[in-house]
Write a protein that binds this DNA or RNA. Sequence first.
RNA 1: GGCCCCAUGGUCAAGUGGUCAAGACACCGCCCUCUCACGGCGGUUACAAGGGUUCGAAUCCCUUUGGGGUCACCA
Length: 484
Amino acid sequence: MDNRTVTRFAPSPTGFMHIGNLRTALYAWLIAKAEGGKFILRIEDTDRQRLIPGSMEVIIDTLKAAHLTVDEGPNRGGENGPYIQSERLPIYKEYAEKLVKIGHAYYCFCDKTRLEALHEEDANGGYDGHCRNLTEEEVARKLSENTPYVIRQKMPQEGTTSYTDMVFGEISVDNSELTDQILLKADGFPTYNFAHVVDDYLMGVTHVVRGSEYLSSTPKYVLLYDFYGWPRPKYVHLPLLMGKNANGSISKLSKRHGAVSFADLTAQGYLPEAIVNYIAFLGWSPKETNEEVFTLEELTEIFSIEGINKSPSVFDYDKLIWFNEIYLRKTPFEEFAELAAPFIPEQRRDFAGMEKILRLIQPRIGKLEDIEGASDFFFNLPDYDKTLYINKKNKTTPENCLSMLINALDALKGLEDWSNDGLFACLKELSEKTGVKAGAMMWAVRVAVSGLSVTPGGATELMEVMGKETSIERIEKAIAMLEA
RNA sequence: GGCCCCAUGGUCAAGUGGUCAAGACACCGCCCUCUCACGGCGGUUACAAGGGUUCGAAUCCCUUUGGGGUCACCA
């Protein structure tokens, strides 16, 4: 074994990848890669009730989409497998029994009824240590009678336990606060509390990277390392990701805050690269620069644990959109068109002007989901009000727009070169000839042709896309409306 | 409730005893411009409160307040 940095991402198969989990994976990956280390994927499926089929694929696909390469894992293999906890049951049993043998764990035969009664007595109290001091004979007898049992960790009753976290510093807890947690469940599966410690040790994990919700239970894990005589890993607890509630308060980011899984986000048209870039900056910032746009590769260069923040951060969709816009604009058009395809209503996909529409829209949308709405007016002229023709800067009114449109209609009807340049030249010339500002002329035509006060592209760009027939038709309609 | 943790603008954040307290998003204004977007320029908004320590505190200590996490045969 060398002393390379080894981190792991150990999600449980819940069916979707929470964005907070992705960030944990990203940081763990970055910490490993910054040092040329190893990144392990391990599936923590010890809770059989909550197991959701197909989850592992979601996890693997997400990591792949985010470009977080796995060095060892269920999909890659490796020298420390298996990487799925349900396939490691004998290991946990062996280590749990070993712990009993050396006096730091014990068999517990308390049944559900007793535990529930305990809980009713004091909802905030833990296990009372009822089976802590059973004699060897009693244990042997119960075992021979096949009484269901669990194995609990025997916590010290005095003193304090402390450890150093690389972001939060020294954490110290009175041992009297520590309850005798279950290590091995009655169904023979280990709990997270036990399995992850055994696996992290066996797999040579050097940095345990996870959310700060584990900050206060880590003393229990640290004790396990001590009991076994294993060197403790380094701990890197990450500040939680929060969401803003309707009433302004914040709480752990969850579904009611909006899209929170990676799949939800990509389904709305956020690009994986933008998501990754954004979440890298949620709870971390680089020391030497104010720049925020970085590729994954660049992040491995500048990422450091020292830059990780302690306080929870609120997930801000506005900022995500900003990142997304940047990545959307950087995307070569051909690629953008491919990404856009699934977001275009089927009946519009073969419209001849679709490519031009996409070119107009690419630099103006926040996420791919916006494509349909942003281009809708090309297909359906919105109902609009005469007041749209009022523009202060160009001094337009419904009245002068009407005369401009009448002139424009006439000129456009005779126009051969229906290209953006041709259209622009035509209208520009017309405006000079008729003595109106070009901006005013453009305003009138643009509104007539789009029915909107704000459009992706100018009057002539829109007309080029729509074609002569539709453009003329819409202008005639506008004239009719203004004359009414 | 006990325990643990956190506290700079609406949000993300720099800042580690001496700064006019960076920067980004959002918002507002101006410029550019066939509208919008992009780009450029400018602006509004912050050290939770109260005590200390110090010549000097956003930075150190205490208290309060606020927020979060955790107390499962879930992870």
